[in-house]
Design a protein around this nucleic acid. Structure first.
Length: 479
RNA sequence: GGCCCCUUCGACUAAUGGUUAGGUCACCACCCUUUCACGGUGGCUGCACGGGUUCGAGUCCCGUAGGGGUCACCA
């Protein structure tokens, strides 16, 4: 039975790297008919952010990643929030102490700092000097009774090679002498990631741990913990995913641009486009197809095809993917997305009108905001005019022609793109000039910019009265 | 610095040891066209380097270089 978990710590927004980890877990679970679990790792009480769990839940919902067990849906291995499981961790930590697999450590933060500094100065890797590792039972008892705060540390065996198999990378080995006597239980009684993670994965019967590569170097500690508990036979398989990278190839970080899923949502990216894009960062089904629905991703997903090397999170392709998804949407689907943006911008128009704008903008929009922000002339008359287009198209001749066009527009009984085009074409013909000589200045006068949808369709949508008003305004104000 | 991981066009990637090293984004040119976009055609640039193994290496082995991750009472 495949049982996987996504185990974020709720510290605010959802990082796109986390999104991809969550996605791969989800795809793997669904592909194998397994169980996808959400576990909230909130053991660092200093980094708790209010509302973060809720935000996480909503964000996962938005992208279409669902869970079978978790804080919301419950399940037979709960609770699924680590802060509600502290006595489990404490009990297990005590068991390790009793079995001489772990030991209490009374060193102060100051002492640890000093030790680290000394080792670094000596050119050594900064590790704990194992000062408390060999305290006698009596010494421990005295310190305990004196109420000296302590942590619990893993008693890492000396002189062993720890090897584990990673589904992405193959066998990976570490020399145990390079592994620190890791803190398992903090002095506040909360577990560290390592302890809580191993206990929970075991108790929740996790079959595959799929997580980011930043965890690869702590995996031997986890292996040691499974051994210490005697759970080695039930140890999950590991798969460490390549990192998502900044353009400079460092680990993707906030410093270098947007990394929050919420940012992308707020900038007009569609969830299916984001998912599609992120799925293909570090994994590829060996096909030339670029667009996959969630169902197709589930059908195709295979951990064996996950890459080893990190992938730069390049926004150009995301933009293209988003534009592809926008083109595939129905007008009504887009209406739902675009209408709130129009409202937010202070434009109140009918659904019918907005649908027409959407229709004209659909193949031009890369984000849902483009429907409004690159098409503002559908909602308000321009007061500024593109200088380039003005210099090129708003000539004396053009102005005079606009006066005649305006007259003809006013007497037009039927206002459709066909009738409008008729006026322009026949006028151009009568003057033996190219239609472009009329189209470009007209576009500038009505929209204020030099680009956009086909002019005739655009004028039809804006409407006769408004178009005439704008031409009159331009004739007076555009010099 | 120690340890670990990684390395195919600018980016994402494909390629039973046998291909003119393929696709997508981006970029450039042309076509379509009233502009922008879409669409179409073509182009551009890549196996990090050096040794092996092999009839044959992007693919296997070793080394070098470069990049990244990690070394907390954070996850």
């Amino acid at each position: 039975m495949v049982r996987v978990r996504f185990a974020p710590s709720p510290t605010g927004f959802v990082h796109v790297g986390s999104l991809r980890t969550a996605l791969y877990n989800f795809l793997f679970a669904r592909h194998h008919g397994g169980v996808n679990i959400l576990r909230v790792e909130d053991t660092d009480r200093t980094r708790l952010v209010e509302g973060a769990v809720d935000n996480l839940l909503r964000t996962m919902e938005w992208v279409g990643i669902t869970f079978d067990e978790g804080p919301e849906q419950g399940g037979e291995y709960g609770p699924y929030t680590q802060s509600e499981r502290t006595d489990i961790y404490r009990k297990h930590a005590n068991e390790l102490i009793k079995n001489v697999k772990a030991y209490p450590c009374f060193c102060t933060a100051e002492r640890l700092d000093e030790v680290r500094k000394k080792m670094q100065a000596a050119g050594q890797p900064p590790m704990y000097d194992r000062h408390c590792r060999n305290l006698t039972e009596e010494e421990v008892e005295v310190k305990m009774e004196a109420g000296i705060p302590h942590v619990v540390r893993l008693r890492v065996p000396l002189g062993e090679t720890i090897t584990f198999n990673d589904l992405v990378r193959g066998d990976v080995s570490f020399d145990s002498k390079t592994i620190d006597d890791q803190v398992l239980l903090k002095s506040d009684g909360f577990p560290t990631y390592h302890l809580a993670n191993v206990i929970d994965d075991y108790m929740m019967k996790i079959s595959h741990v799929i997580r980011g590569e930043e965890w690869l170097s702590s995996t031997p500690k986890h292996v040691l913990l499974y051994r210490a508990f005697g759970w080695e036979n039930a140890m999950p398989k590991f798969a460490h995913l390549p990192l998502l990278l900044n353009p400079d190839r460092s680990k993707l970080s906030k410093r270098q641009g947007d990394v929050a899923v919420e940012n992308f949502r707020d900038k007009g990216y569609l969830p299916d486009a984001l998912i599609n894009f992120v799925a293909l960062l570090g994994w590829n089904p060996s096909a030339t197809e670029e667009i996959y629905s969630m169902d197709e991703l589930i059908a195709q997903f295979d951990l064996e095809k996950v890459n080893k090397a990190g992938a730069i999170f390049g926004k150009e392709k995301l933009d293209w993917t988003n534009a592809e998804y926008i083109r595939k949407k129905s007008p009504d689907e887009l209406l739902v997305l675009v209408k709130p943006i129009a409202t937010e911008r202070g434009f109140s128009v009918s659904d019918d009108y907005l649908r027409k704008v959407i229709h004209l903008m659909q193949e031009r929009a890369r984000s849902t905001f483009d429907f409004i922000d690159f098409a503002s002339y559908f909602f308000k008359a321009p007061t500024e005019f593109d200088e380039k287009s003005k210099a090129k198209n708003w000539t004396l001749d053009a102005k005079e022609r606009m006066i005649e066009i305006l007259t003809q527009f006013k007497s037009l009984s039927e206002w459709t793109h066909n009738s409008i085009e008729g006026v322009i074409r026949s006028y151009a013909e009568s003057k033996t000039i190219s239609a472009g000589k009329l189209i470009h200045p007209l576009r500038l006068a009505v929209s204020g910019v030099g680009m956009g949808p086909g002019l005739f369709e655009m004028l039809e949508v804006i409407g006769k009265e408004e178009v005439c008003k704008r031409i009159e305004y331009a004739l007076v104000n555009l010099n």
